[in-house]
Design a protein around this nucleic acid. Sequence first.
DNA 1: CTGAAAGCGCTTACAG
DNA 2: CTGAAAGCGCTTACAG
Lengths: 342, 342
Amino acid sequence: MKKKVCQKDIARKVGVSTALVSYVLNNLKEGRISKTVAQKIRDTAKELNYRTNQIAKSLKINKTFTIGLIVADISNPFFSSLARIIEDEANKKNYTVIFGSSDENAQKSWKLINALVGRQVDGFIIAPAENTESDLTYLKDHDIPFVLIDRYFRNVETNWVAIDNYKAAYTATQHMIEGGNKRPGMVTFNTSLYSLNERKRGYLEALKDNNIAFEKTWCKEIFYDDTKTSVEKAVADLLSLSDPVDSVLFASNILATYGLKYIHHKGIKVPGDLAIVTFDQMDSSDFFYAPLTYLKQPVKEMGEMATKILLENIEKGKEIEQINFDATLVIRDSTLHPQSKL
Amino acid sequence: MKKKVCQKDIARKVGVSTALVSYVLNNLKEGRISKTVAQKIRDTAKELNYRTNQIAKSLKINKTFTIGLIVADISNPFFSSLARIIEDEANKKNYTVIFGSSDENAQKSWKLINALVGRQVDGFIIAPAENTESDLTYLKDHDIPFVLIDRYFRNVETNWVAIDNYKAAYTATQHMIEGGNKRPGMVTFNTSLYSLNERKRGYLEALKDNNIAFEKTWCKEIFYDDTKTSVEKAVADLLSLSDPVDSVLFASNILATYGLKYIHHKGIKVPGDLAIVTFDQMDSSDFFYAPLTYLKQPVKEMGEMATKILLENIEKGKEIEQINFDATLVIRDSTLHPQSKL
DNA sequence: CTGAAAGCGCTTACAG
DNA sequence: CTGAAAGCGCTTACAG
């Protein structure tokens, strides 16, 4: 029971050509093949437990029904949720997904994309790391469809689905200010990524519109390496300013997780000592003693849309689509400031 | 810049046969090819930006350097962490990983395995759903290497890496009892999966060894569908017994997450009203107002070991390996019972 | 209604 | 040191 059965085996057994086997197994030339022989082929295929060799088929038809998913880290809940949505959508259309984690590293990203291109994936869904514009240019030059998710570059014209990060951060900051906070801080990554910089811009603009004079000590930019320690230091710094910050916006779930552990550990009172808003939904935010106010991204819609756009591109070669969803501010206890104006 | 460049293009340009191109690109027959022509081939390959078509190569060599990963749900942090470890290990050896989520459903599992077999994956790492023994038999019959992770079946002799669930649950239950709890409960899944039943067995055995008479109302078995509601009801039931349970062991992170949200929501005091131990590490367990005592699985070691065993099987066809790791009981506040004996 | 044959892009004995 | 040729398992004009 070892050897794989192929079309030739079926053809031989039924006494027809492999062409015919291929046709009936693919439901081609329906009316033009005698029902009896078609049935015999199907029966024999089932009997021999035939399974088409997708590799051979792919080579011939120049299509693998495989998509590559490149994220920063598949073990980050935001990306694994996205992966699950994408998996489901892709499977519906008989696509399979190969994933890779770039660790926000341009070299790794290029290596992954390169490997998957060699494997002839039909397209990519990518949450690009910074400085990976050239990867995308490469894909474009080679007519390999892709859609960016969560992040994009203003100077590369392509498909993407993301959220309006400026608006989201603005809304969150505005909310903190309306809650009576006078000195809102922010913890974000030190990056050239547009999406994160938009979050910072939204934060700054909200301060400005509320006539709050931004002080640059209020915004901490964390490097990707040694994130944990840097976040802890950042939070400590924000709270030990001569005029400490009274509220803080965490620009991602990773930053928030480290920050909150530290805050919890240090016994800092939320929202009393510090009001908090985070980007992204986390299981943890329900468990923090003050359930967290957070910006909820429509992960399901984003994943579905990205997959839909990609598959359309693969199958019909559609025009460019750029979709901005809105994040929703889910207001809970971590911003119920004692001296709230609301 | 559209057409893909193939070995023929290089061969033509250099003026040699494709055989030679293939040899030098694969570093074969090193001494037996003139250095100058070899160099010219390499230069031209680089110049034309040649990338070998893995699909064609796979078809020929009958190996795809791809492994299939089947888990219950890639968005479950336990599995996404595992996925990340496996990805890294696999990549080191130039393997790529395709994943699929079975949702604990045997039909889905079979569909996924079937699809990936058609794609000629070189092997599988599988966290099997219940009633999927036949899938595994199929793989064995077809000499497709695989290793089970997290779960296995006693009656299918194959590679697996897991933890000693009996021992883990026993230890956790013993710990609850030593903390002064007289009526420990358990929330687990209703399943035939050996790993989960071992957890129950460990719990029961610990009760017995401590002369605590088990009452069947203490152990709640949750069905896979409608998990959230069922868990909430289970916890409510455990606490509204005429003699309520004073402590509870959650048999998985999913069960714990739903249970804890409910407990938090209802204002149940932990560990005062209820001591808690959970299986699996969760971000959330650091944030619960009483940091949770939990059974930590050595996810990294498990993922690495599973990948190592699989790749050895693929490459050398090794004998069967069955590895049981130990979980570690990490003791924190959720089991610091007021009337502790310790 | 059906089959012979070419070809997808590689690898690999084999012959020289 | 190098090339012609077969073949991996499919699909698909083309011819009949």
